[in-house]
């Protein structure tokens, strides 16, 4: 299947209409320690497989979307 992103607002679009926003991460509490914050900021699961990630539809509806994608095959997994 071609690598297209199904934008809930705009329909299936070329990924080049989007800006890739990285894997979904959870920020630590504001009061967490240096290790927790640096782990969060600088380390990545960098999944070779399915991961949840953010995409911003720059050329379309200008919304951030959460997409589940297989980073090896580019398959988008519908929830």
């Amino acid at each position: 299947m071609p690598f297209l992103i199904d934008c809930p607002n705009c329909g299936r679009r070329s990924p080049y209409e989007f800006k890739f926003g990285g894997e979904c991460k959870r920020a630590p509490d504001p009061g967490a320690d240096v290790k927790a914050w640096c782990d969060y900021l600088y380390l990545y699961e960098n999944m070779s497989g399915v991961q949840d990630e953010w995409w911003y539809h720059t050329m379309g509806c200008r919304s951030w979307l959460k997409i589940r994608r297989n980073t090896v095959t580019h398959e988008i997994i519908e929830e």
């Binding site: 800006k19 926003g21 911003y56 200008r62």
Partner: peptide, 10 residues
């Protein structure tokens, strides 16, 4: 900036 604003309330 537009994207940044949207990012912080996504």
């Amino acid at each position: 900036t537009e994207e940044w604003f949207a990012r912080w309330c996504r």
